[in-house]
Design a binder for these strands. Sequence first.
DNA 1: TAGATATTTAGATTATTTTCTAATTATCTA
DNA 2: TAGATAATTAGAAAATAATCTAAATATCTA
Lengths: 90, 90
Amino acid sequence: MNDLFKALADPTRRAILDELKKGDKNAGEIKDCFNITGASISHHMSILHNAGLVLRERQGQQIIYSLNTTVFQQLIEWIYNIKGENNENQ
Amino acid sequence: MNDLFKALADPTRRAILDELKKGDKNAGEIKDCFNITGASISHHMSILHNAGLVLRERQGQQIIYSLNTTVFQQLIEWIYNIKGENNENQ
DNA sequence: TAGATATTTAGATTATTTTCTAATTATCTA
DNA sequence: TAGATAATTAGAAAATAATCTAAATATCTA
């Protein structure tokens, strides 16, 4: 859970998730959306992957990243818990 | 929005929110729940307040903090947006 | 008003995170 | 297999964030 919050705390990583929302992208395509090096993107992707926010799949020379939305359920549960409400509609 | 994510990224701050969930607390009572100085707690409270997560009210010598859950709606909307779903039931 | 208590602010230190360059690994293709 | 391309890893530098001590501010009460 801490990994998830930490992963979402960085604005670049949230922007990466926004990009992936539009569709799957390989590491190079993600890099092209931002003004930072491939190494830094790779680091961010590793944090996102570690938090369960993205899925990775090699396709030849490239690594295709995709959004994994299932992990957001945990976050929603955390929110409803702190709000002291249940979460029956989800 | 960035302030909100940053505020939630620290485990001590999330623990503070958990404490406030049980009921309002003054700064000293919050401090007693953790093994850090009052100055550090004060710093965390300022970040939480800045993010809209807590409300502050002076009562004599003490400052009473309380959870402000309304701001979580934004977070829920962010999640539903990134999931590409709407949020009609909320 | 003086002293006590509660909390915050200032400024420094330590720890963590982000970012970089250079080197490495993996895969493809001529 | 050699060279090219894609991405990651390693290690260092720079930027942020967490924490501390000491000092300041606000309020209460004798």
